[in-house]
Amino acid sequence: MTYCVGMMLDRGLVMMSDTRTNAGVDNIATFNKMHTWEVEGDRALILMSAGNLATTQSVVSMLDERTKAHDQRNPSILEAPSMFQVARLIAETLRDVISIHEDAGPRAAAQFGATLLLGGQVAGGPPRLFMIYPEGNFIEASADNPFFQIGETKYGRPILVRAFDPQMSFEKALKLLLVSFDSTLKANLSVGLPFDFQLYETDSLRLGYRSRVQGDSPYFQQISSGWGEALKQALDSLPDFVLEK
């Protein structure tokens, strides 16, 4: 399992993913789940993945190969005229990769499933954020639904719903995401550090700041312990329940 979040702010996009792919007593693996492509001045694309690792790696490899092949039968995401067309190409690639396993029956098809988050901007259009499903269809973020989650979503969602503000800065958005990710990893062993994040500023048409938050990060430790303490203080400040006598 995994946890990835893509946010649409007035300022641009914020994307964050964990890096854990297997979890168990003695079986934990770390893989990068965030991939980017850039043609400076023309487009910047960010893709995050949740689901079967073999499927997602195959999708990313095929997308990479097509950026170098210039094959009209398999157009490149670096040549698509809009973010919608980029999403369509990636959705078709995901569906094709999964369909390879359909001969083994519906259980195998589900086993090799994956969900993707695509964010970015192509010159001539606004920044856009899509969630791409294994069936090859997708939906787009909007003012009514300004962020998407994939993977282990339920533990980190409440903080996002309560605190998200499209006018917030990148710095505050990252703080909010770290609280959401911290809540998730404390509740589920299948999500773990380090966390990768990528920023994209509207109309820059180039990838922004990218970094990785390690488990020994002093700032993350401060966020984790501070959030726990803040919750205790908030609970204590609320009136106690009164039992009827």
Rank of each mutant, 00 (worst) to 15 (best):
T93R: 10
S49E: 13
G6S: 11
L199W: 10
F130K: 08
G113D: 11
L63P: 00
E92H: 09
L13F: 12
A234Q: 14
W37Y: 09
F147K: 04
A163F: 15
T153N: 10
G226Q: 07
A230C: 03
T202F: 07
K186P: 01
S204G: 03
D216S: 14
A123D: 08
Y209E: 12
Y209S: 12
G41V: 10
M83S: 03
W227L: 05
G41T: 08
L45V: 15
I77S: 12
Q221E: 12
G125W: 13
E135N: 05
L178R: 00
F181N: 02
T2I: 02
V39G: 02
M168H: 08
V14D: 00
M8C: 02
T115H: 15
L89Q: 12
M15T: 03
V213A: 08
L9Q: 09
G24F: 13
Y155S: 12
R95K: 14
T21L: 11
N137T: 12
S76D: 11
L63K: 07
G136D: 04
D26G: 14
I139W: 07
C4Q: 09
L205G: 09
N52F: 09
P106K: 15
A114S: 13
G24M: 13
A141C: 10
V14T: 05
F112V: 04
L94Q: 08
L178G: 01
D103L: 00
P218C: 01
P127I: 09
S211N: 15
R107W: 05
K245G: 01
L177S: 08
Q149S: 05
A143S: 09
T153M: 15
I77W: 13
V191C: 07
L45K: 09
L243H: 05
M16G: 02
